[in-house]
Every structure is written in structure tokens, then in C-alpha cells.
Design a protein around this nucleic acid. Structure first.
Lengths: 152, 152
DNA sequence: TATTGTTATACTCTATAACTATA
DNA sequence: TATAGTTATAGAGTATAACAATA
């Protein structure tokens, strides 16, 4: 029955194929990144926070940062504690509203982030060289749509 | 300078675009899954272990399971402890070699895994309906190549 | 002695609830 | 009173190193 459903419904065949490949991708990506970041004494959550901070030129508040990195603020407090300890970010009171904190990447943080990203780019170049320009364009567009639908 | 490099080198432009989108995808996927699994009282690592167990009809040893789920065995011991506690898997001595353990999904475990996967399929169908069959085929093939290159 | 797996330890992440300081 | 953020607490994941049981 499942077989005949699939024969008559190519969408459903693709759903199963993509379900498997996306779950595989998600976990493999996470574990791989976890191990690569260990060489830099970083965790995946810390790296996500560092990436999120790139988007804020004037420094981010704790709440903005938590939202951008998909965490709650209590969790982000601990993550930033350790990034401050490692001198990767600074956390300073906003003079205008002393309840608010401004978190910014230090020079060291910016450099470290760039180093990690360059390492990832090496893998990506190898991957992209194996697919055609058309496939590349479609891939980027389709991943964008995936993000919209699943996390939009 | 970076701009002129990119103008003359479409590959490098794609590297930057895909670097961003893949890191975004990796973290968003992880956090989303973490939150969705909480409703089932599961963690992402437990779910990865459950998925890995599907591939073993006769039950998996701890070392096989650890490798399939990309963990070391000491970590897997703790994960399986909690899956046994929740009656999602069983862990039994192999009579032929009493050093070895055989881990298998219970009926409850199989059912729970199917429930989670069906929930993910609902999102996937919505996504796939928004892209053409050609794009789907390319997407599956390209993701497969990505997995080969990056985690090969 | 070699292999299979667990235990001990230390640290990080995570969510919830209660709390402090400032507005 | 409302807002921004931290602290306290409890549980889970992770790697390393030392250990026990079996072959």
C-alpha cells in the first residue's frame, strides 16, 4: 500500500528521501562542527552567539542576542559569561539605560570568528567545485526556502 | 578588493552565500529540533541514537551504536541509560560474548520514532510543495554530495 | 594481553522559577 | 509597576582517563 501510494505520488517519495537526508545533515553538521570548534576552544552555542553578534554594529543587548541566537536570556547569560572570560566579547552597561547591557565582539573575537569561517570555506569550495553553477544557484535558493518554511 | 575578487570569481561568491546559509541551517535545524523533541521528552542526541538503531535489525552493540550516532562509547552509555529508563530501548548481554551488549528499540521506541518523523514530514511536504520537481531532484542530489564531501 | 563497555570527573548547555536593579 | 538581566537549581550531554569484566 505504501508502495502504490509512492508510485502514484512522487511528492511522497521525495518527502521520505529528503526527510532522511535532512535529519542526517542536521546531526552530522552539528557533530562535525562541535568537533572542529573544540580545536578553537569554542562550543557550538558560543559560535552561534558570535555569529549573531556580527549583525550588530553598535553592540547587541542581551535580549537581542538571545533572540538572534535562538536562546532564552538566562541561557545566554552563561554563554556570554564564558565568552567574556575568554576575551572574545565585552559586556558593558549602557549609560543611557543602566538596566541594559551592550555585548560586542572584541578584536580577538572577530579574528577567531574569521579563522573558523575560513576553515569551513575550505570544505565548501571542495563541495562547490563538484557541482555545476546551475546546481549551486538552485541549491542556495532552495535552502533559503527551506529556512523560510521550517523556521520562518 | 574583496568585491573585485568576487566579481571575477563566481565560485567565491557562492562560497560566501552558502557558508552563511549552511551555518544558519545547521543551527536553526538544531534548535528547532531540540524544541520539538522536548514535547516528546526526548533530546536531540537521544533521537540521533534512536535513528541509528533503525539500521540494526539484530540489535546494535554499544560500539556500533556510538559510531553510527557519532559519539564515543562513554557518552553513549549515558544516553542509552536514559533511553532504557524511558523504555525506548532494551540493552541485553550477548550470550555468545558476555562483554558485548545488544541495544534494540522497543515497540514503544519504534512508535515514538515514527511519531516524531511524521511530524517532521508535515513541514517537509509544505516546503516541497513550494518548489518544482526538478528543484527537488537537484536538491536531494546536491545535499547527498555535500554529505559526502563534508562528512565523507 | 586485548577487547567491550562502564565509572569518575569536570565542564557546558538548557529551561524554569525566583530574584535584583533600574526605569 | 514594568523591564532588563542574573542567579539558583536540576538534568542532560560531552570528552578524558581510569577501571572492571570477559575473551
Amino acid at each position: 500500500m505504501a508502495a502504490s501510494l509512492q508510485e502514484n505520488n512522487p511528492l511522497e517519495t521525495d518527502v521520505e528521501a529528503i526527510e532522511h537526508v535532512m535529519l542526517q545533515l542536521g546531526w552530522a553538521t552539528h557533530r562535525q562542527l562541535h568537533q572542529e570548534l573544540a580545536e578553537f576552544n569554542l562550543t557550538v552555542s558560543q559560535f552561534a552567539a558570535m555569529r549573531a553578534l556580527q549583525g550588530f554594529d553598535e553592540g547587541s543587548t542581551m535580549s537581542e542576542l538571545a533572540e538572534a541566537a535562538r536562546q532564552i536570556s538566562a541561557t545566554m547569560t552563561g554563554i556570554v559569561d564564558r565568552l567574556v572570560e575568554s576575551e572574545i566579547v565585552t559586556r558593558q552597561r549602557d549609560p543611557g539605560d543602566r538596566r541594559t547591557l551592550r555585548v560586542s565582539l572584541t578584536e580577538k573575537g572577530v579574528g577567531l570568528l574569521e579563522k573558523v569561517k575560513e576553515k569551513k570555506r575550505v570544505q565548501l569550495r571542495q563541495f562547490l567545485e563538484g557541482i555545476s553553477p546551475t546546481e549551486r544557484k538552485i541549491f542556495v535558493r532552495v535552502i533559503g526556502k527551506y529556512l523560510d518554511v521550517v523556521y520562518g
